[in-house]
Design a protein around this nucleic acid. Structure first.
Lengths: 350, 350
DNA sequence: AATTATTTGTGCGTATGTATC
DNA sequence: AGATACATACGCACAAATAAT
C-alpha cells in the first residue's frame, strides 16, 4: 500500500477508472464528496485529482466537475506511431518505410523509427524502450520470423497496455491475435515455379532464406508447384541460407546448386543478381542455359546485366495498407490479417 | 502578464533559469525565501515549483533544496529528434537516414521522420507541427536550398524556443547562425572536372541542378577548374535542370549538350545513368567517345552498363556526423559547420 | 431572465513529518 | 543535536464557472 494518503487516493481512483467503475463521461464524485468518502481534507483530494489530470485520465471543468476522458482523447496529444524495421537503408525497405511515413502523415501521425538489424536482442531492447514511450501504435517487421522468438512476452505486454500492434512482412506464428500485413509468399512461390514449368523447365533449383517466414512460404509454394506437376523434388536442388550470408553463399554454392538445372527460383533480387553475375561469368547464358525467377522486383532487378523477371512486391502500398489498418486499430476496431497478392511483368531472365 | 500569482511565479522562475540567472546546481532560493521575495504564501511558491518540477526544469530534494537540472537531464523523458528529409526512399537518402537512426539510437534518442518531397509548402506545414511537438532537436535537409526560402521565420522561432537545429546536405544562405553538415561540393566539382582535364579532355560539358545548393556549388567547382586551366567556359555546354525533371531533361537535351564534348560532369548518378544509357543507345562509346564523371557513388553507379566513376558521398557517415553535432548542441555546445570531403575510386566511365 | 446551489480554481495559514547538512 | 528545507496534511475563504431552479 502506498505511504501517503493522496497517492492512495490516486491509486484507487485510477484503478476504478481503468476497471470501468467510472465510465467515460461525468461519473467522478465532487471533491467535497470524495473528501467525505475517504475521510480526508479537500486539499488531499485535489492533489490526487491533480495527478490524474496530469496523467490525462481526467478533465476538470470548473463549476462542473471532474470527468473521465475517453481513451481516444486521453492520448490525443501524442499521435506517434513506432515503426520497428529490420533495416532502414537496404533493398525494398526504404520504399515500404516511405509508404508508411506518407500514410501516417496523412492521418496526422508521426513515425518514430527503430532498426533491429534482424537481431532479436536488438528487438528486445527496442520493445522494452517502447513500453515506456508514449506511442499510439506499433508497426513491426518481425525479426527472424521463422525462428522461435524470445520477445513474445513483450508484445503481449504491449497489448495489455492497450497499444495496437501490427506486423508486416514477417509475423510470429506463436503470437495469436495480432494482425499482420504480408505478401502471399506461398502463392508467389507457386506462381514463380509454375511459370517456369509452363515454359518447359523440368529441373528447377531453388534458393531460399531459412530464418524468416517469407523464405519458408516461398519454399512451400515452390514445392507444391513441383509436386502438382509430378516433378522431382530433390533436396540437392534447394539451397538454404540465413541472415548475413547472402552473397557469400551465392559465391560458394550458387553454381553447384543450379548444376543440371535449367531454371532457378531465387528468394529475392539480392540473391538473384549475384547469382546472375556468377552464371554469366562462368560462361552460361541467361535465360538460354539457366532461367531465373526472383521476388520483389527491386531496382536491382532492372539494372542487372539481364533484366530479371521478378514478382512485384507491393512495397509502398504494403506500407500504406499497414498504416490504414493500424489507424483502425487505434480507433478501436480489431483488424483481420491482410495477405497481398504479387503481380508479374516478365522480363529478360525467363 | 499571467492572471494568477503562481503562474506568474512559474514564468519568472522559468525565464530566470533559461536566461542562466540560476545555473545548473543548487542556486534556487528556498521556499521560505521565495515566499518573502515575491510576497506570497509558501503554498503559492510550492505550486509554482511543482510546475517547474513537472516540466523537468528543476529537481526538488527534500531537506536540501530545489536544484536546477542540467539541460541534458532536463528533458530526459523525451529523447526525440525530428528528422526532416526531402525524400525517404530515394537514392542515397536511405543510407543517410540509416546513419542518423543508428547514431541516434546509440545516444538513446529516437528519430521522428518527416518528408517534404522537396516542397516548401510541405516544409512549412511540418515545421509548424514541430513547433508544438516535444522534440529535443531537429535535423533538416534543406528544401530547394538554392532558392529563397519562405520558412526562415519558423526556423528562427525554433531557435527561440531553444530547440537546436542542424542542416544537412542543403542549408539556407540567408539563415545565419545555424550549423550544417554538407559535402564539399565546390571542391568536388573542381576535382571531378580536374580529373577529366588531366586525362586530356578539353571540351567538358556539365549538367547541374539549379534549385539546390549542391548544384550551384558543383557548378562553381566545374567552372573554376575550367578557368584555372585556361579552357573555354561555354554556356552551351552547361545544362540546368530542376526538381522533378531529371530523366525527362536528360532524354530531351542530354545528347545535344554533350555534342562536341569528350566528357561530361553530371550532377549525380540519377542523371549520369540515364545519360549513359542514352549515349550507348546512340552508338557512342563510354568512355571512348564521351567520358562521364558523376557524384554520390550510389549503387546505381556500379550496376550501370558501364560502371560510372562517381565521387563517393559519405552517406551514412554524414548522417552520423550530423547526429554527433546535434547531440553536442543539445548538450549546450554551439557547433561549427562541417564540410566533408569527397573521395574517389575511378571506375570504367573515365 | 435572475437567483441559487454546486463545483472546481486560487490563495493563505498552520502543523507535523522527514531527509540533509 | 540542531538548524534548515522540502513533503504531507488539514483548515478556511473567496473567485469563477456551471447547472438547475
Amino acid at each position: 500500500m502506498e505511504k501517503f494518503k493522496y497517492l492512495q487516493l490516486t491509486d484507487t481512483l485510477r484503478t476504478a477508472i481503468q476497471n470501468g467503475k467510472y465510465v467515460t463521461g461525468e461519473k467522478l464524485p465532487s471533491e467535497n464528496e470524495l473528501t467525505k468518502m475517504h475521510a480526508c481534507s479537500r486539499q488531499t483530494v485535489r492533489q490526487a485529482l491533480g495527478i490524474l489530470d496530469a496523467e490525462g485520465l481526467t478533465e476538470r471543468i470548473r463549476g462542473s466537475g471532474t470527468y473521465v476522458r475517453s481513451p481516444r482523447v486521453q492520448k490525443s496529444w501524442m499521435h506517434n506511431v513506432a515503426v520497428v524495421s529490420t533495416y532502414i537503408s537496404e533493398y525494398i525497405l526504404p520504399s515500404i518505410l516511405s509508404g508508411i511515413q506518407q500514410e501516417l502523415s496523412i492521418n496526422g501521425y508521426t513515425a518514430m523509427l527503430f532498426a533491429t538489424n534482424n537481431r532479436v536482442d536488438n528487438e528486445r531492447r527496442i520493445i522494452n524502450e517502447l513500453l515506456q514511450k508514449p506511442i499510439d501504435g506499433l508497426l513491426v517487421e518481425g525479426t527472424k520470423s521463422a525462428l522461435p522468438n524470445p520477445n513474445l512476452d513483450l508484445y503481449r505486454k504491449l497489448r495489455q497496455q492497450g497499444i495496437p500492434v501490427l506486423f508486416l512482412n514477417g509475423y510470429y506464428q506463436d503470437l495469436e491475435g495480432f494482425p499482420y500485413v504480408v505478401t502471399d509468399d506461398r502463392q508467389g512461390g507457386y506462381d514463380a515455379t509454375n511459370l517456369l514449368i509452363h515454359k518447359g523447365h523440368r529441373r528447377i533449383a531453388g534458393i531460399f532464406k531459412n530464418d524468416d517466414r517469407q523464405g519458408h512460404e516461398r519454399y512451400l509454394g515452390y514445392t507444391s508447384a513441383l509436386i502438382e506437376h509430378g516433378l522431382a523434388l530433390t533436396d540437392d536442388r534447394v539451397l538454404w541460407f540465413s541472415t548475413g550470408t547472402r552473397v557469400d553463399m551465392v559465391n560458394q554454392y550458387g553454381l553447384s546448386v543450379v548444376e543440371g538445372c535449367s531454371a532457378v527460383v531465387c528468394y529475392n533480387d539480392e540473391v538473384a543478381v549475384p547469382l546472375l553475375n556468377l552464371l554469366l561469368h562462368a560462361g552460361k547464358a541467361v535465360p538460354g542455359d539457366v532461367a531465373i525467377m526472383s521476388f520483389d522486383n527491386s531496382t536491382m532487378a532492372d539494372l542487372a546485366a539481364v533484366r530479371i523477371s521478378s514478382l512485384d512486391h507491393p512495397k509502398q502500398k504494403l506500407g500504406v495498407e499497414a498504416v490504414r489498418r493500424l489507424m483502425h486499430m487505434i480507433g478501436g476496431q480489431p483488424q483481420e490479417p491482410l495477405v497481398m497478392p504479387w503481380s508479374l511483368t516478365e522480363k529478360e531472365s525467363t
